[in-house]
Design a protein around this nucleic acid. Structure first.
Lengths: 157, 157
DNA sequence: AACCAGTGATTGCTCGGTCAAGCAAATGAA
DNA sequence: TTCATTTGCTTGACCGAGCAATCACTGGTT
């Protein structure tokens, strides 16, 4: 069970309730809104943008599927399909991994890099306007650490 | 374009970057983790739980599809399909709306209420343990308001 | 050398989102 | 009244993404 200790459960108080609902709303709305911006501005869905971006930030502009998937917060199978889409657009190429022939590297092409160069300002603007803007005056570092804790806690407790 | 004013875009500073990445992680991990808890404990997926919960909180334990969809952060067609699943399990029943015969009400059945009664502790525990726990000491009200702003901003700017 | 457990990646199935079409009831104008 | 338009919901098509099963290769054991 999820609550093995079975300490008496307090119902959420109004602030907790409000926060949980608001987070639910944000999780539903934000990715779609940013994706819509990206598609509208550059025909580049957020998932694909994220993959290109992560590739661009790494030496050799290449990554194993595994690493890339977790950098993009995507399942490995989702990553496979995203890379296939990017490959058919010529934005990424796949190479067998030299030190382990089971593995593949996704490699950012020049064309992919160019695509990223033209689209990052939209992404940055969207993130600022739709999200960060609403947190002015917050202690972002403290907040980031709390989210990191929530995002990395064990699956089974 | 998403950035019509075109003010010079500052790249994200490290704190902003960390927050955005951590939020991405949470959006990816949290709903799945809670869903896994709910399915593991009660064979009741999070989406279905959320529908039952929202119905239970309202007088008459009935809601129009529209309202319910937005309360659950689900699209209308997603809601239709969820209610169909709940109906085949006998947890919800559908009735034509009296004051507007185009509309339908989803009505929580006794069986649905019983199902909810036995499963809410798991949900509450999961929300506390996986999310709220990491925000002890925060001003939850202030945080909730910021998320509400981010979650309700216009789609087109 | 031959096997086998473990790991990296891909494929099949389902859920949920969007979009477009359809239908029934309501609303408003002629 | 009648008829066109709008509204509430359902349905189908298609797509993206997650999970579970599977395939492909590795590396250790015998």
């Amino acid at each position: 069970m999820s609550n093995p200790a079975a300490e008496p459960l307090q119902p959420l108080n109004p602030d907790e309730e409000a926060l949980v609902r608001a987070l639910g709303q944000v999780m539903h709305v934000l990715p779609r809104a940013i994706d819509t911006d990206m598609v509208g501005d550059h025909q580049l869905p957020l998932t694909e943008y994220t993959a290109l971006m992560n590739l661009s930030e790494v030496p050799g502009r290449r990554m194993r599927m595994n690493e890339l998937a977790s950098a993009c917060h995507l399942s490995l199978s989702g990553m496979t399909r995203t890379i296939i889409r990017l490959e058919t657009q010529g934005l990424v190429r796949r190479e067998r991994c030299e030190e382990d022939a089971r593995g593949w590297n996704a490699v950012l092409t020049d064309s992919g890099f160019a695509r990223l160069t033209e689209s990052w300002p939209s992404h940055l603007a969207a993130v600022r306007r739709r999200f960060l803007q609403h947190f002015e005056g917050f202690d972002l570092d403290q907040l980031a650490r709390a989210f990191q804790r929530a995002g990395t806690a064990e699956t089974t407790d």
